[in-house]
Nucleic acid binder design. Structure first.
Length: 476
DNA sequence: CGGCATGATTGCGA
DNA sequence: TCGCAATCATGCCG
């Protein structure tokens, strides 16, 4: 819209404003504009009761001023400066500017008005929320602790992730500091720029019509522009936090070996369920709880264990023996306790109410393990008879065709078990506690390299189940 | 530092 | 969806 049309679009307000300045006009041109209005680029006919010739004169006068303004750019600099000064000092100027400002308001606001009260950007809100949740934004103290705790919890580690924890927090603090520094910089720049623009506009308002509202609007525009820059900052901060989190949460990157105790628990279960080492969902949950790991970690562990055991049974024999013996000892002790219990309470039902937790009997001493192991292989004690072990050791071929040595070792283990039984029988008067103990018996492993009933999960949770209870192996 | 151990991931099939 | 097999990536130890 051209300036001339703007001016020509003077409404009644123009006339009303001009009315106040009528006397000034009179002093300038000797005529008054009072009661006149100009619309649509064409002067309206004067209202009834007004002098037409007077109106023409006023129009001419204001037209001259406007003409001077319009043509100021066509003139030389000096000339324009002189004319500008003249216009600035013109007594009509305040009135004219006030009218022009009003016109600008009316034409400009209708266009920009819609943008004035735009709702908060949902993306910005998301970013803000995220930064708040991650502890980057918001209060300084304790910031990020929730996120760090979440990261620690998700990393799956139990106790030894304090290093990562502090590392994570340190990195988060770094991000936070950079974010705040940058934010401060932006705010400072925004304020500086706003002040600068405001000063400029105020300065310019002396030479061109700029209303305070317009300045306000300009400030709004500047703030919006800067907030979009701020959004970029927030976005990149979010990205940085995401990368940081993914680094710390990516368990593959930060693999931690399970604790010795956890591995022992898992191994105990594995070797005591060797014929069907597929823990049920409940068993997995139980194991996960005992080992302070997740169920999927238990699944991973069993998956890896099955495959690695199957690939190289020979390598795992020693381990198998160890855990088999351990299970036997556990079972023996449990049985002894059960017998004592049954003798005391219910002699007719020896296995009723039999319960024992793994933690109650742990063969933790390396010495005792070694002794046990050496005894096993020297065969120094007991007979090789295998009583009550109908499903004991099947001769079989391993995957790579090597003959499977489990039977002999198993026999040795069994001899050890017999020794234990003797000891127990002497001390607790127990004679057949180990009947039905499966020990190291990979009979479930078929010739195809897979476990029989591989997809039938065992429902037995504890490897130290009572010897009298029906083992899931036998039910398969 | 190299090699082995081990937890996790991926792709595939049932 | 689960398990298997292969593979990756990291931890650990000599």
């Amino acid at each position: 819209m051209s300036f001339s049309i703007c001016v020509a679009q003077c409404t009644d307000s123009l006339a009303a404003t001009m009315d106040d300045q009528a006397r000034i006009m009179q002093s300038i041109g000797g005529v008054s504009l009072a009661g006149h209005s100009v619309q649509g680029g064409m002067p309206l006919p004067p209202p009834h009761g007004h002098d037409g010739t007077d109106g023409d004169g006023r129009k001419q006068d204001i037209g001259d001023i406007l003409h001077q303004i319009m043509t100021i750019t066509d003139q030389s600099l000096d000339e324009a400066q002189a004319k500008k000064h003249g216009l600035n000092c013109h007594r009509m100027k305040p009135a004219l500017f006030s009218v022009l400002c009003e016109i600008k308001e009316k034409t400009g606001l209708s266009i920009r008005g819609a943008q004035e009260e735009d709702p908060p950007d949902p993306q910005l809100m998301r970013l803000d929320n995220m930064l708040l949740a991650e502890g980057v934004a918001g209060p300084e103290k304790g910031g990020g602790s929730a996120a760090a705790a979440a990261a620690a919890a998700a990393s799956g580690g139990a106790a030894d992730n304090s290093i990562e924890h502090s590392d994570y927090r340190a990195k988060l603090t770094q991000i936070r500091q950079i974010y705040h520094t940058e934010l401060e910089k932006y705010e400072q720049a925004c304020n500086e720029f706003t002040t600068h623009v405001m000063n400029l506009l105020r300065e310019q308002s002396r030479t061109r019509p700029i209303s305070p509202k317009e300045i306000e609007r300009m400030v709004g525009i500047i703030h919006r522009k800067f907030s979009s820059i701020q959004m970029q900052l927030k976005q990149s901060t979010c990205e940085a936090v995401m990368i940081l989190r993914s680094r710390f949460l990516d368990a593959r990157r930060k693999r931690r070996n399970f604790s010795k105790q956890a591995t022992e628990i898992l191994n105990e279960y594995f070797y005591s369920h060797l014929s069907n080492p597929y823990p049920s969902e409940e068993a997995k949950e139980e194991l996960a709880k005992k080992c302070s790991i997740t169920v999927s970690q238990v699944s991973n562990w069993f998956g890896n264990k099955r495959i690695r055991y199957k690939k190289n049974i020979g390598k795992f024999q020693e381990e198998a023996n160890l855990y088999a013996a351990k299970t036997a000892v556990n079972a023996a002790h449990a049985a002894a306790a059960a017998v004592q219990n049954s003798q005391a309470n219910s002699p007719t039902t020896p296995n009723s109410g039999f319960q024992m937790k793994d933690e109650e009997f742990q063969l933790d001493s390396a010495e005792s393990k070694n002794t046990l192991l050496s005894n096993m292989f020297t065969g120094s004690s007991g007979s090789f008879s295998l009583p009550n072990t109908g499903d004991m050791f099947l001769s079989m071929q391993s995957l790579n065709g090597d003959s499977y040595q489990g039977a002999q070792v198993g026999a040795n283990v069994q001899s050890q078990v017999d020794t234990l039984r003797h000891v127990i029988s002497q001390t607790a008067g127990y004679n057949d506690a180990l009947a039905g103990n499966t020990m190291f018996s990979p009979h479930g492993l078929n010739a195809n390299g897979g476990w029989q009933d591989a997809r039938t999960p065992s429902s037995v949770i504890s490897p130290t189940e009572g010897p009298g209870s029906v083992h899931s192996d036998t039910s398969n």
